[in-house]
Amino acid sequence: MHAFDYATPESVADAVVMLSDHGKNACVLAGGTDLIVQLRENRRRTDLVVDVKKIAELNALSYDAATGLTIGAAVPCYRIYGDAEIAAAYPGLMDAARLVGGTGIQGRASLGGNLCNASPAGDTIPPMIVLSGEAEIAGPNGTRKVAVEDFCTAPGRTVLEDGEFLVSLHFPAPLANSGAFYRRFIPRNEMDIAVVGVGASVVLSGDRSSFVSARIAVGAVAPTPLFVREAGEALAGQPVSDETIRRAADLARDAARPISDMRGTAEYRKHLTSVLTRRVVEGAVQRAKE
């Protein structure tokens, strides 16, 4: 590990100045559960680490049944699932927040950090996509908003420009008769990175017999977490049935373009995408009915 400077700005504006001054030679620290490991293992090199945990906006956590949920980019997972009201309103997001690392890691790791790390296998990203999450970004030119599904551009790469950083994430309030679900497949029952992860959200008709709309996103099967718009659209207006769900699962499988690596072959990942999508949509439907 190489020596670097460490700064703790207390305002968004100060952080923007520091990051702008150092450009690519600076990096942002929230929980540090990815960053510190990367620095220690020389997978990343930096001159300046900007710790954003002292900025108020980055620690905000608020929920309103009318306007939705705002999560500061540095809010650790335990605070999110530790809030009973938020946990009840967004169970699909909690599926992932409770999965990241282990209990100790969840005391530090944030959804914002998981998104900015931009791993194709990041567990919280598919559920953020299917819940129509929006990222608020601060930078030298003010703030801008980007949909979560457009945030990651390649493994480890995002839409963030030099001097920019993620401030918060916003999710609309859940609709009536809606449900969301996230599940990943790992060979063991703990301590693994997703071979495939699938998130789904559905809105059912009043009698819960058909889909009004659906969103499906898949992790670890493409260079970025993948929003499979067509799989969700294929469910809209269709009856809730094994057949319609299988069709959506096949579309998700077809959209997957995985690689073969030590976590699974491409063929196996495509197969799992179909299996998991079916199970996850069924899980989301079940929650919508509850």
């Binding site: 063991r188 029952n189 703990e190 301590m191 990175i193 690596d261 030590m262």
Partner: peptide, 16 residues
């Protein structure tokens, strides 16, 4: 070797 860590060299955990 592509999996020279306990993350990807998968020994059983207590949950397994």
């Amino acid at each position: 070797m592509t999996n020279a860590s306990f993350l990807d060299y998968r020994m059983p955990t207590t949950l397994d």
